[in-house]
Amino acid sequence: MLRIPCPHCGVADEAEFRYRGDASVTRPPADAGVDAFHDYVFLRDNPAGWHLEWWQHAHGCRATFQVKRHTVSHVIAWSGWPGEAPP
């Protein structure tokens, strides 16, 4: 079980959160076309290493935020609000 640092509430059990996907992809502009949206919806890297991801504190403040997590060691190096860049 992960212990996840919510930027609003502090550290809490993984069970309070919902994983919301890869935070490194960006929704294309409306006129970007089918290929761009196809990549956005279906294509994901699967790194063995650091991964930037969205988590939502669904059973808490309901904030959505970014987490930088190592997919092998599960170490969480950073969490921050949308739009913030990890150090």
Binding site: R20, A23, R27, W54, Q56, R62, A63, T64, P82
Partner: peptide, 8 residues
């Protein structure tokens, strides 16, 4: 809805 509002 919350996710799109917060991130997109």
């Amino acid at each position: 809805l919350e996710w799109h509002l917060a991130t997109v």
